[in-house]
Each structure stands twice: as C-alpha cells, then as structure tokens.
Amino acid sequence: MPTFFDSWLPFIYLYVGGGIFFLAGMILIRKTKAIDMRLRRDRFWWKAMIFGYFYFMAIHAFSIIAALYL
C-alpha cells in the first residue's frame, strides 16, 4: 500500500507549490488591469481560470482515492 509520502504528499506539494504561482498570476492580472472585470468576456475567463485549478485538483484527488480504496 502506498504511504502518505507517495500519495497525498506529492498532491499537496503540487497544489500548494503550483497554487502559489497560480495565485500570483491571478493577483497580477487583476492588479495590472490586464483582465478587465467590467467586460463580460473577461469575467467569464476569471471564473474559468479558478474552475481549472479546482478541476485538476479534483481529478487528482479522485484518482488517489480510487487507487487507494477501489
């Protein structure tokens, strides 16, 4: 059976480490007004980007649970 070291730790490392870069990007594009939240299209993209982060997180979490318990 894989240990925490070989299952959830890589998951946490990926989403915390990657999350720092992701968050920095989201803050930067808001701060610089590269994304204009007054525009419908840009509001859509803002939500799509947040969705993408949790979408991949959910796929990975589900895959680990399936590997360990199914």
Partner: peptide, 9 residues
C-alpha cells in the same frame, strides 16, 4: 496534468 498554474500569466 500540471500545466494550469501559469495559465493566468
């Protein structure tokens, strides 16, 4: 599965 983090940039 690890390419999303730089998408905002």
């Amino acid at each position: 599965m690890n390419d999303w983090f730089f998408v905002p940039f």
